[in-house]
Design a protein around this nucleic acid. Structure first.
Length: 421
RNA sequence: GUGGGUGUAGCUCAGUGGUAGAGUGCUAGAUUGUGGCUCUAGUUGUCGCGGGUUCGAACCCCGUCACCCACCCCA
């Protein structure tokens, strides 16, 4: 096979797809409990949406976007994240006029041109949510409670929640300038990467893993301590609610997020079993983005979880138990097939899972197939049964065998109907 | 974009210059009509690709591609 899947993409095979749908179903179910509605946006958008939405200085825009021209020369980008498209859809479809509070969730593939590694793909899947129209500490906390609940539901327990506040946009800009002034004298002592960060995005120097850099940065008062009293109080209330909710967390005064639009509360759930890409879910408040994208000033809070990373973090013993269901019809000769294949369809229309042997193969191999595919029952029809006008029925779980006349079939189905739901 | 590791059967891997291997899977059989466990047999190869060295290369050398891990960044 010479044509292979594109670097950083992968097939989700039948053997793993159950895990995916399981996680998706848990998410949908919880979102419903928390009062969220689903929104689906296109997977590509005009490039400019992401330029103004994510910020031109961000790494995503600088080097990670799949951008191309369509035949009419429009600049198009495969969505690298879900927030900007959701806001675009929110504004374009006049949702602000439909009420003050909007709780939306989405689920689907995102695209970033990065070097693949553990927990990082070029096409990857996110489950995310955005709440528009509310600025309240309790909402911020409710979103973290949601993620905490979601992870717990999936059995992912070895997680750490880190929270911080970035203050208002003005606080952030003022602090960026302070930081630049502060670092300008010590610039030569910073690592090579940080010297680039100094020019491009100073805030990122804060969470540099280089020890030298972090010790330099620690001499400077953290952003969260110089922001206005109103914002500080807001953040303290967030922490208070987290305490009361019993959600364990750590304040990380140097936590900075990579997307430019965040203000005030930001958070990250880290998972210890993930490797280097250990952020399993992250998000925060972005009170200026709606306005940036042409709407009225609207407070907003959002987060996203990486589905591949959720799957990597699933407990070792995670196992979707599949119970046996349905009937596999084994026809041992063509005459049996001709007489009874329509009965298979008849069962399906009554809501049963039913399959049949399409061609003559040994009984043994057909039973293996039925067993491997988790059927609960097999019906065997061969020469003997045709002559005697009945089927042989076997339960693959209990090994019980019995005979069944065709006129008893309806009654038999009724008896076991509930088992197949 | 940078660094390290790995490419051999469908899968997991052994094999360091002399005939291409194991386990697992798959197929069939072990009372010619009864699954899982066991046993037996069969089955699959461009040894990533291209070049070079050699009487001879899966193995050594050069190049290249892919995958994995890490840096960067992010979910």
């Amino acid at each position: 096979m010479s044509i292979k899947a594109i670097r950083g993409t992968k097939d989700i095979l039948p053997s793993e797809v159950n895990t995916w749908t399981f996680i998706e179903n848990v998410a949908r179910c919880l979102f419903c409990q928390y009062g969220f509605d689903e929104i689906r946006t296109p997977i590509f958008e005009k490039t400019e949406l992401f330029l103004s939405g994510i910020g031109e200085g961000s790494d995503i825009v600088q080097k990670e976007m799949y951008t191309f021209e369509d035949p009419k020369k429009n600049r198009i980008t495969l969505r690298p994240e879900g927030t900007a498209p959701v806001i675009r859809a929110f504004l374009e479809n006049h949702l602000p006029q439909m009420g003050a509070l909007h709780k939306l969730f989405y689920l689907g593939p995102m695209f970033r041109y990065e070097r693949p590694q553990k927990g990082r793909m070029r096409q990857f899947y996110q489950i995310g949510a955005e709440v528009l129209g509310v600025k309240a500490p309790l909402l911020d906390v409710d979103m973290m409670i949601f993620v905490h609940h979601f992870l717990k539901e999936l059995g992912i327990l070895n997680v750490t929640l880190k929270v911080n506040t970035l203050g208002s946009r003005e606080d952030k800009i003022a602090y960026q300038n302070n930081l630049k002034d502060f670092l300008s004298a010590k610039k030569t002592h910073l690592c090579k990467d940080c010297q680039v960060r100094y020019e491009k995005n100073v805030l990122r120097v804060l969470d540099c893993s280089n020890q030298n850099c972090s010790s330099i940065v620690k001499e400077m008062t953290p952003l969260s301590e110089i922001i206005g009293p109103e914002r500080r109080e807001y953040f303290e209330t967030v922490c208070l609610y987290l305490d009361k909710a019993g959600v364990p967390y750590e304040k990380d005064l140097y936590l900075v997020r990579g997307l430019d639009y965040y203000t005030d509360t930001v958070f990250e759930f880290l998972c210890s079993s993930l490797g280097a890409q250990n952020a399993i879910a992250a998000g925060g408040r972005y009170d200026n983005l709606v306005q940036t994208l042409g709407g009225k000033e609207t407070p907003a809070f959002g987060f996203a979880c990486g589905l591949e990373r959720l799957i990597l973090s699933l407990p070792e013993d995670f196992n979707l138990s599949q119970s046996r269901t349905g009937v596999y019809w084994i026809f041992l000769e063509d005459k049996a097939r001709q007489s009874f294949f329509s009965r298979v369809q008849w069962m399906r229309e009554k809501g049963w899972k039913a399959e049949m042997s399409y061609e003559d193969r040994s009984l043994k191999s057909q039973m293996r197939y039925a067993d491997k595919n988790n059927f609960e029952w097999i019906f065997i029809i061969g020469q003997k049964e045709l002559e005697e006008g009945k089927f042989q029925v076997k339960n693959l779980e209990t090994h019980v065998e019995m005979d069944l006349r065709e006129d008893e079939l309806s009654h038999w189905l009724q008896r076991f109907e509930n088992k197949d739901e």
